[in-house]
Nucleic acid binder design. Structure first.
Lengths: 187, 187
DNA sequence: CTCTATCATGAACATGAACTCCGGTTCCGA
DNA sequence: TCGGAACCGGAGTTCATGTTCATGATAGAG
């Protein structure tokens, strides 16, 4: 994901961070629609500098999304700490969705029609998938999720909720409706 | 919706239809991404002719989406014929979603982040909303939908399912998960 | 302090897609 | 059959954005 090799001049490293921060904030707020000049301005740099650090817009976006996925992985790991399986699941689900709500670029990347890869890239770069699988399995084993619930279903409901994030906070309602169909035999 | 006024010359009317057909098919397949030249070529016309009939791309898109919404309204009306409330609801839901699956432009229009209006425009131009409300209410009254289910929730689950239409047929699974949380006290 | 490899800058360029324009064509009523 | 209003075509214009590159600045080792 545009790896920052070793020994970068101090100013260069600083600028790189500025770009990442500016892009992160703008992408989060307005998704892919922000333009390079805008990011440069907000970072207090010239456009050329952006291109010194990232090959093109796509690469910059990828870096940002990658960053978010790392945060998601940390979040999943934390959720997995909970001893109660249902708590773990709920923590993961709501944590994921609240993060998604705050990041339009992330949502668009996952909801867009041209996403052949993101979920796959994630699988290679992080162990988000495997942690999610474990959490789901724990909840299933405890009878808190229907028996046939799979990690793929997590993606499904996640996408569904994200699709309801424009406008009011309808996604919580969506999740509520889902939860009551998701719960297993116990309780 | 770019109303076809009275007395249009025969060739003009014919061409208008060609444009609508071509645009409908292309938009359905690839969404907003198709370009005007492409539509013109497929319709066997010059771009100029497109612009004679539709002010801009947006207007053309609006005409297409409007068309689909009329079809949706017919579908809802038909569903409402069923005497069993649950059958009516299911017919509407699956009919809606199957249509949506066949029309990418429609999906993008509803899922896109810049949709302040579509659902509102629909309310003004068709009575899709009111029919849906009636069908939902019938199902609620019969105890087939949870008591607090509202027409807004229909939009919610519909959006959720549409968000799962890229890739495999995951949307059916999504609906299944939802249904089992949607069903009311009876049965 | 010096020197140079590294970095920054932003006007200029490249690209692509929506839209316009007007000479040529066709329809249709009388 | 004829006149002219309505219509068509598609090359060219416009505009918006991503990307480059020649020039100037600077960090930081020696």
């Amino acid at each position: 994901m545009t790896a920052p090799e070793r020994s970068l001049r101090a100013d260069a490293r600083r600028n790189r961070e500025s770009v990442l921060d500016a892009a992160g904030e703008l992408f989060a707020r307005r998704g892919d629609a922000v333009q390079m000049d805008e990011i440069a301005e907000r970072a207090g740099l010239g456009v050329g500098t952006l291109y010194r650090h990232f090959a093109d817009k796509q690469a910059l976006l990828a870096a940002i999304i990658g960053r978010r996925f790392e945060a998601m992985t940390a979040l999943a790991r934390a959720a997995d700490e909970a001893e109660d399986p249902w708590t773990a699941f709920e923590t993961l689900l709501y944590g994921y969705l609240e993060s998604a709500q705050a990041d339009a670029a992330f949502r668009f990347a996952l909801l867009g029609p041209e996403e052949p890869s993101w979920n796959d890239i994630v699988a290679e770069k992080t162990d988000f998938s495997s942690i999610t699988e474990r959490i789901v399995q724990r909840a299933v084993d405890a009878g808190r999720l229907r028996e046939d619930f799979r990690a793929d279903d997590f993606v499904l409901i996640t996408r569904g909720a994200m699709a309801n994030m424009t406008g009011a906070g309808g996604w919580r309602r969506h999740v509520t409706l889902l939860l009551e169909g998701i719960r297993g035999p116990e309780r």
